[in-house]
Write a protein that binds this DNA or RNA. Structure first.
Length: 479
RNA sequence: GGCGCGGUAGCCAAGUGGUAAGGCGAAGGUCUGCAAAACCUUUAUCGGCGGUUCGAUUCCGCCCCGCGCCUCCA
């Protein structure tokens, strides 16, 4: 197996991945702020993280992966107040939608899915640690982090603080701060705001402190991997480093991995620009979960992904090709034994697949390995050189592939039904399909092709595709 | 302006100092009563200009273009 190399934002380079404890990976992921439905740009990052965790598991690592839900922030407080709800009730709906979406995209549940509001005490304790070390100062009931006291500030995002003047582009008029870049660890409540009564006073946590507190609580003071979208590198992750390392004196995370953005029509997809799609938007247009996952996963994570509907259609067809191969393996009758060339070919595919993913999760390379094998396997089948023993080996390879990519197994219809799509039109039952196929075979035997064709067309209109095999058998699939 | 990502066929996208993976699409074939699936063939000289080199898409320099971060943000 190839050595795993990951691009570390900290160094700006590809680095061999070696966890602190052999065989075990402690990983933290910044999850969504549950103030609204997440869009597919958000899921680009979550799919990347899923590919990463699945690949690490495939390579035998024991994972401790934590993902947080940010369920307290300015937007949530404002929206909840406007809706006349407490913040827990307000966020519950979007948290649930997020879980549903993850399931739909086959994003595995991390070992710990946690909420900020369940960890207020941990944050307070961390702030107290920082207070003792005088990394903080209070102002008008809020508590700020004093960046001037942390010389390494900027090491992740390579930001140069000299020249940043208070005022110009920095929103500093709401609170009194010593320096424009200082950020709030704890925010004093405004009238009517939701707040917590704590040892450090009434209020609510700043955004950054939650990740430091929760990551260290579950994973220890030094994580192996910390991931997120590229836009989080500054200021969020930079501030996490400042808080955590000031408190512990130890490196906070050893590998920082950032996913590039998904673009739509050449611009970053975002709520504020209004150019976003949710999963539900795409499903309503008839696109399938696996196709979206494929589209999001097929472009390596450090490359911006320009989302288009044409691209989604391409992904749909690519997935179809792999599923056709899987079906063909399952339904075919092959002579016993093995074809020596094929076995070698499959082991080469395994190797190339692993090499691709080991190269900083180069999914494009990994996919090429799969499609190469697909062609060779199909060719061998066409030539009659494929054996039953090859079926098993090929299937094993596809299973391995799907442990990471999770697109071959066809449970799209089921997933969509769970979300409330397509339940009205489940299509003809299996029994009905089999009956019509039998009628069509009978018609064909009588060389009554008009009847045979009309049955084919009737089924096609109802979303069922028939394929006649050379041996007279018929396979069908739902479109 | 600073920092970062990128500019490879109609579209998506790998990649290497020695004339460019893979997928989608398109065209033409094979197979087929038809169709589908599958297979075969065709479909690029790698943003521009210089330089280094026997040879550069790949190294160096300059330039052009797109996007992101520098403010909440996956």
């Amino acid at each position: 197996m190839a050595e795993i190399q990951l691009h570390n934002t900290l160094s700006g380079n590809l680095e061999p991945f070696v966890p602190q404890k052999p065989g075990e990976v402690r990983m933290y992921t910044c999850g969504p702020t549950v103030y609204d439905y997440a869009h597919i740009g958000n899921y680009r990052t979550f799919v990347f993280q899923d590919i990463l965790r699945r690949f690490l598991k495939l390579r035998g690592f024991q994972l401790q992966h934590v993902m947080n839900l940010t369920d307290v922030d300015d937007r949530i407080i404002a929206n909840a107040a406007a809706a006349g709800k407490n913040i827990r009730d307000y966020t519950e709906k979007f948290a649930q939608a997020f879980f549903d979406d993850c399931k739909t995209l086959s994003i595995e549940a991390p070992e710990h899915w946690i909420r900020a509001t369940d960890h207020i005490d941990d944050m307070v304790q961390l702030i107290e640690r920082l207070q003792k070390k005088t990394f903080t100062y209070a102002s008008e009931g809020s508590i700020y982090y004093r960046i001037a006291k942390f010389p390494n500030y900027g090491k992740l995002s390579k930001i140069d603080l000299t020249g940043i003047q208070a005022g110009a582009r920095v929103d500093n008029d709401r609170y009194e701060k010593e320096s424009a870049r200082d950020f709030a660890l704890w925010k004093a409540p405004k009238p009517g705001d939701h707040f917590w009564e704590t040892a450090i006073g009434p209020g609510r946590p700043g955004w950054h402190i939650e990740c430091s507190a929760m990551a260290m609580k579950y994973l220890g003071e030094t994580l192996d991997i910390h991931t997120g979208g590229i836009d989080l590198a500054f200021p969020h992750h930079e501030n996490e480093i400042a808080q955590s390392e000031a408190a512990t004196g130890k490196p906070f995370a050893r590998y920082w991995l950032h996913a590039e953005h998904l673009l739509f029509e050449g611009e970053k997809m975002s709520k504020s620009l209004g150019n976003f799609f949710t999963l539900r938007d795409l499903f309503a247009k008839g696109y399938k979960p696996a196709a979206l996952r494929f589209a999001l996963a097929s472009v390596p994570y450090r490359k911006q992904l320009n989302f288009t509907f044409d691209g989604l259609t391409q992904a749909t067809n690519s997935v179809e090709r792999l599923r056709n191969l899987a079906d063909r393996l399952q339904q075919g009758n092959f002579p016993a034994g093995k074809q020596s060339g094929m076995i070698e070919r499959i082991s080469k595919a395994h190797e190339e697949f692993d090499t691709g993913l080991s190269d900083d999760l180069n999914t494009a390379r990994a996919l090429a390995a799969v499609f190469d094998l697909a062609r060779d396997a199909n060719t061998a089948m066409d030539k009659g050189e494929f054996r039953q023993g090859d079926v098993d080996a090929t299937q094993q390879f596809l299973v391995t592939f799907d442990k990471v990519f999770a697109v071959i197994e066809d449970n799209d219809a089921q997933k969509l039904r769970a979300l409330g799509y397509g339940s009205a039109d489940a299509g003809p039952s299996d029994a009905e399909i089999e009956k019509l196929i039998a009628e069509r075979i009978a018609a064909k035997k009588k060389r009554d092709f008009p009847t045979a064709d009309s049955i084919r067309k009737e089924l096609a209109d109802r979303g069922i595709i028939l394929e006649d095999a050379k041996d007279g058998s018929v396979r069908w699939k739902r479109k």
